[in-house]
């Protein structure tokens, strides 16, 4: 039992930078949600039940335009499809205790950031570890939304502008150390970045969620062909 609690706390600790990054990103989401005509309760409910940035931003666009529910479902499916891939990837490195009922709950915590931290974690993932990380990430995400929706206009613009980079700073901190040590990962990172720039320049009509899928799948497929991972 104490061991279980321990992994929960470990997960929470590992999730602190995620929560802080989320706080700043969801703050911006809260501001736009109110601009789109939602109340701060509705905005916070969306953050609690969706826990995703690109999908939520696209979702409030659909609501603001009074689109159909089918459009809403199609948009969410496309933008969030990457989580399906991440779920399969994560399923390969789960602890034996991570059984079906735990997975039903744990699935809600599959986000880009939680996936990145869990999938680069050295040991098999225990439910408590992922739950701890999800719990603190959700609190950051929902409270940021609430504060942004409620009091967003009160903060000086230079502060909100600076907060915009927090989550990307965290991404860089995750990818640079392994990329500087392993050529295969450096190759993956550069290939994905170049593809992503090309998407932005030449295919601007593709939504950002969909662009991420194409670029990530392309870069990982290429890296896997050139640098197959040897068995440990």
């Amino acid at each position: 039992m104490s061991k279980k609690k321990n992994s929960f706390l470990l997960g929470m600790a590992a999730g602190i930078p995620i929560a802080l990054g989320y706080l700043s990103v969801s703050f911006a989401f809260g501001i736009s949600a109110v601009r789109a005509g939602l109340t701060y309760i509705e905005a916070s409910m969306i953050s609690l039940t969706n826990l995703t940035s690109a999908g939520q931003v696209a979702g409030i666009d659909v609501i603001a335009a009074r689109g159909s529910l089918f459009e809403m479902a199609a948009v969410q499916f496309t933008i969030n499809l990457r989580y399906a891939l991440m779920g399969i990837s994560l399923s390969q490195n789960l602890d034996k205790s991570y059984t079906f009922p735990y997975r039903l709950i744990g699935a809600h915590g599959i986000t880009d950031e939680i996936y990145a931290v869990c999938s680069t974690h050295k040991e098999p993932i225990k439910p408590a570890y992922m739950y701890g990380m999800t719990a603190i990430a959700v609190s950051g995400w929902v409270s940021g939304t609430f504060i942004g929706a409620f009091a967003g206009k009160a903060l000086p613009e230079q502060v909100t502008a600076a907060l915009g980079i927090v989550i990307y700073g965290m991404f860089i901190a995750i990818i640079v150390p392994p990329a500087s040590k392993q050529r295969s990962i450096l190759f993956t990172v550069i290939a994905a970045a170049l593809l992503s720039i090309a998407c932005k320049l030449f295919l601007p009509m593709i939504s950002s969620g969909f662009a991420v899928i194409i670029c990530a799948v392309g870069a990982a497929a290429l890296a896997a062909a050139i640098f197959p991972v040897k068995e440990e």
Binding site: A116, S119, V189, I190, L195, A211, A219, A223, A224
Partner: peptide, 18 residues
Amino acid sequence: KSFLHYMPYAVLSAMTIP
């Protein structure tokens, strides 16, 4: 396996840049 190993780095890089 290799594809899934490189996925998180590719996702994060594509999300970060540009």
